[in-house]
């Protein structure tokens, strides 16, 4: 078997104490997982379970206190800027808040062109065509290019965010609750987009989510986080249909089952 694209081993994230009356918070406690090329791994758990801290550490937005994060064979925890900046093109984030992820003063065109400009890959001859191509990839109508975020719907904003991530031609997307803030009627469309991008571009995805019904549908494998530790992991269907850990069972029992809903 070939080496996984992302390999996280014994990752520790600790937040320092704030003031004298609090103690440091151990958000992620020695967790290990891998994501292969073209694969979706879901991290599930409640708020405070360490999902987003794990994402921030994988993205090197917060330096982990311990453990190793290897991406494409390179150890990221010891790499410094500016080299990290180059490596980051390979793994790009999509965040939860579609409006908060975009500058309110940048048009769709500028938002999508920005990564190309920052990476010195902008060429006034081919740049606009590349932006148009990226908008096509996320199924955004080209008529939106001159609009500002407040003129877009939540679903459209999220697609702009995804186009920005794709501009760097990443091999891994780190998706932190990417559809939780979207309206139910547009959620399925964005989920389908992730599936489609995976099929067409072979993208690996680290999918952070608290919705187990959704995770069961989109992920290949699942890791269940509880208080900073992985309490259960395995193939998505297996974990969701036959959970072995009490915490996973509790999570699943609190999810209203859509089948029961339609077949009652």
């Amino acid at each position: 078997m070939t080496a996984p694209l992302l390999e996280v081993r014994d990752l520790v994230v600790r937040y320092p104490a704030r003031g004298r009356r609090t103690s440091p918070v151990l958000a992620v406690d020695r967790i290990s997982f891998t994501v292969a090329a073209g694969e979706t791994l879901a991290l599930v758990g409640e708020s405070g379970s360490g999902k987003s801290s794990t994402a921030a550490a994988v993205l090197m937005l917060r330096k982990p206190e311990g453990g190793s994060v290897r991406f494409g064979g390179r150890e990221l925890t010891t790499v410094e800027e500016p080299e990290l900046r180059t490596l980051r093109r390979g793994f790009q984030p999509v965040f939860q808040d579609p409006y908060g992820s975009l500058s309110p003063r940048k048009t769709v065109f500028d938002a999508v062109a920005e990564p190309l400009r920052v990476q010195c890959r902008w060429d006034s001859a081919t740049g606009p065509a590349r932006v148009a191509e990226l908008l096509d990839l996320v199924h955004l109508d080209r008529s939106v290019v001159r609009r500002l975020p407040h003129e877009l719907s939540g679903g459209q904003c999220q697609r702009v965010g995804i186009a920005r991530a794709l501009a760097s031609e990443p091999r891994l997307l780190v998706l932190d609750e990417p559809v939780s803030a979207l309206d139910p009627s547009v959620r399925a469309g964005v989920i389908n987009l992730f599936t489609e991008l995976q099929d067409s571009l072979g993208l690996a995805q680290l999918f952070i989510c608290h919705d187990l019904a959704l995770v069961r549908h989109v992920a290949h494998r699942v890791a269940v986080l509880h208080r900073g530790r992985i309490v259960e992991s395995g193939p998505a269907r297996q974990v969701c249909d036959a959970p072995t850990h009490d915490y996973t069972r509790e999570l699943l029992s609190s999810v209203p089952d859509p089948d029961r809903l339609t077949a009652r």
Partner: peptide, 18 residues
């Protein structure tokens, strides 16, 4: 558009637009 329990397709039925 809710994720189904038994799906033949990896794609969900989705509404266009917003």
């Amino acid at each position: 558009s809710l994720p189904p329990r038994h799906a033949e397709s990896r794609y969900l039925p989705a509404m266009p637009g917003a």
